[in-house]
């Protein structure tokens, strides 16, 4: 009992110390200019503009790739897949994938996306690598959310003559949407913080320009050039600053870390809140 409180306290206090330390170091650097400047050789004028733009674009690709695929795979495994050796192998695989170190995904992406498919060291490759990484999270969340729906709902739909697809799209998906959304948010929060796979792909640490804008003045107004642009992301920018010996850059690293932590904590907090509300409100 005492030991339990003590252990919990050790964990909590360590974290508090760490965050307070980062807050003290990073806070003075956090101002408007920090968000709107490019990285620079002079620590005082360096900022995270290219980093947060890069992070946003990479997350966009990740979400577009992982969400439909993950939900689709989850629905298939839960509602359609026959119970046989093949699906069992897939299931074991999905669980095992969670234990594979993230840097291994980076190596896969380096070999497959960067060279095999020649996407280059681009936003597209990075987004797809992170999509692979969070796919198991989305699949598991989808399956659990669908599994929690009582059989009577399905039987009711079938009794009224609905087809399998109508049952899934009109009943199962809407009822499980909060659970799936929670999974997606947790997955994306994890992807934002991932550094290792993106380093392996070859994200540059010093980028002083933005990728081409997705909106064009002339026809067809939308361009996908940014997909193949070189990029940097928040964690890589922070890694770059941490590994420099000058103290001024380490203050920048603290500030970037602060932004990163606030981003992931907000997303995870949102997911936890959603789940909490769901548990309270849903009564079958």
């Amino acid at each position: 009992m005492i030991a339990g409180i003590f252990a919990l306290m050790i964990a909590v206090l360590t974290f508090m110390a760490l965050f307070v330390h980062m807050l003290i170091d990073g806070m003075p650097r956090l101002n408007w200019d920090f968000f709107t400047s490019f990285p620079s050789r002079r620590a005082e004028s360096a900022g995270i503009l290219s980093a947060w733009v890069g992070t946003t674009l990479v997350m966009l690709v990740t979400a577009v790739a992982a969400v439909p695929l993950g939900i689709g795979a989850g629905i298939y495994l839960e509602e359609y897949a026959p119970k046989n050796l093949f699906t069992e192998i897939i299931e074991i695989n999905v669980t095992n994938l969670a234990g594979v170190p993230s840097i291994i995904y980076g190596l896969l992406a380096l070999g497959l996306f960067v060279y095999q498919f020649s996407f280059g060291q681009s936003i597209l490759s990075a987004g797809l690598a992170l999509a692979l990484l969070i796919l198991p999270v989305v699949i598991v969340a989808t399956r659990e959310a669908i599994r929690a729906i009582p059989v009577s709902i399905r039987e009711g739909a079938y009794a009224l003559g609905a087809t399998k697809w109508q049952t899934v799209s009109d009943h199962l998906l809407p009822y499980s949407s909060a659970g799936i959304l929670t999974g997606i948010i947790i997955g994306l929060a994890r992807a934002i913080g991932e550094t290792a796979p993106i380093i392996t792909i070859g994200a540059l640490t010093f980028i002083a320009f933005l990728p081409p804008s997705p909106i064009k003045q002339d026809f067809p107004y939308i361009s996908f050039e940014w997909l193949t642009a070189p990029f940097t992301v928040m964690p890589i920018q922070m890694f770059n600053w941490v590994s420099r010996p000058e103290e001024a850059f380490q203050l920048n690293a603290a500030a970037a870390g602060l932004v990163l932590v606030v981003m992931t904590l907000t997303m995870n907090g949102l997911a936890i809140y959603l789940r909490y509300r769901m548990r309270k409100n849903i009564k079958w």
């Binding site: 913080g193 290792a196 941490v242 690293a253 603290a254 990163l260 932590v261 997303m267």
Partner: peptide, 12 residues
């Protein structure tokens, strides 16, 4: 929440 903190921050 702590499980969601990016690893690069722990490196720092």
């Amino acid at each position: 929440l702590l499980g969601g903190v990016p690893t690069v921050v722990y490196g720092y």
